[in-house]
Design a protein around this nucleic acid. Structure first.
Lengths: 231, 231
DNA sequence: AAGTGGTCTAGACCACTTC
DNA sequence: AAGTGGTCTAGACCACTTT
């Protein structure tokens, strides 16, 4: 109770739209009309309408009005937690020379030194995924940090870069898993697995880290949502 | 030119944050201080700060101030267009009895009548994915609409439900593709493929449609972004 | 008590669209 | 010209946090 006026208005309008009282593509009452109806000012009405616009339920068009929009069914959002329920086992931390893919993803010459971290993820004592992270080798790099198991990949770079400028690009695909990874996961060699490739980017597009995560068939699906309420 | 004041302020502050002039977790100047600095009122300052809060760069805490937030690295967003570049061929539209999976996803008894639409997607004349859509059969359903090739899955239901209440849940996984689908895609039988399972939900959770899309290895990766600028 | 963000008012003027 | 949304002002009072 003691709900604020703008919340009441927002909820009223949202419910009206979700109940279908305003058809898709039709306009809402004007700001002035709503202000009169709720005996308030345009500022408060606008706050409510901005909220709904932000929820992508409506769209403002100058000189015309507020239009009811269809929900975005093409944009999907999913969450991926590195340290989910389950345990993680560190399998390897060392220096290697970049393979073709790693070099390409990190925009380094092939054969450049990179630090590799390999981890095995378990759920209920059975392995469900294997992950490799590659970071360009730099002479005075603090490798102790890399041994932290439960740190998020992008967080590794927080010390060296402005965290706000770090983004991650992910690619979902399937490939034939390398033999050693199959054996780590207890699978027959050559099986096609789902792979999540993550490139950590700094600033506009500079790659500063690359990771590959192979998901065993028993990993379970990655679920994503679209439409109103997806975020 | 003729940039609005609130835009100038928003851009100034955003740049300051992205340049690292405010450390993660630190506070911004107060609304009053910013209002004085820009010789404006709190309303305008608030508009700028709301924008940045919406971009998840900062977070407001009542009585304390605005805090600089780390970017969300666990939430990924991707876009999936049914009618991408390429062609689509309708392979089948008919009525079938729901299999175990279809019945479970649509929350129907196994063997319930469902309308099935199967489509083959091509890129450069080669098949890249095969899709099946299942919709509960209803006596007077307009099946003509189902034959529309380029309509988005959720849009099929726009006539019968309030569009705003329709959401889609997606599950990304791999499975051994059925033989007929392998042959349609020109692959050897029994190969593991990436599958996108989409359940179209109405209202809270009522399933009204289910779709399976098998991606051939040459489909290419699904790319998703996280971090600031992901939307 | 002082400082912070949160809500709200009653105006003003501008830009765009429609008639 | 009239109606629509877009920006902005100069106040007010409230709720929360810190000292």
């Amino acid at each position: 109770m003691a709900e604020h006026l703008y919340q009441t208005i927002t909820d009223d309008l949202r419910k009206a739209i979700l109940d279908g009282r305003f058809a898709e593509g039709s306009t809402l009452p004007s700001e002035n009309e709503l202000a009169t109806r709720y005996t308030t000012t345009r500022v408060t009405i606008r706050k409510s309408l901005q909220t709904l616009a932000h929820e992508q339920l409506i769209e403002a068009r100058q000189g015309k009005g507020y239009f009811v929009m269809p929900p975005p069914h093409r944009r999907f959002t999913f969450q991926l937690d590195e340290a989910q329920s389950g345990s993680i086992r560190l399998r390897q931390v060392n220096m290697q020379l970049a393979s073709a893919e790693v070099a390409q993803k990190l925009q380094l010459p092939e054969g450049s030194p990179v630090v590799v971290t390999r981890r095995l993820f378990y759920r209920d004592q059975t392995p469900i995924s294997f992950e490799e992270k590659f970071i360009p080798f730099e002479p005075r790099m603090p490798t102790i940090e890399l041994e932290l198991n439960y740190v998020e990949f992008p967080a590794l770079f927080a010390g060296r870069y402005v965290p706000m400028t770090i983004r991650t690009m992910m690619e979902l695909d399937t490939t034939e898993a390398p033999e050693d990874i199959c054996s780590e996961l207890g699978l027959e060699p050559g099986v096609r697995l789902m792979v999540l490739r993550r490139t950590v980017l700094q600033g506009q597009n500079r790659p500063i880290g690359f990771g590959r995560q192979y998901l065993a068939p028993n990993y379970g699906p990655i679920t994503a949502m679209s439409g109103y309420g997806a975020r």
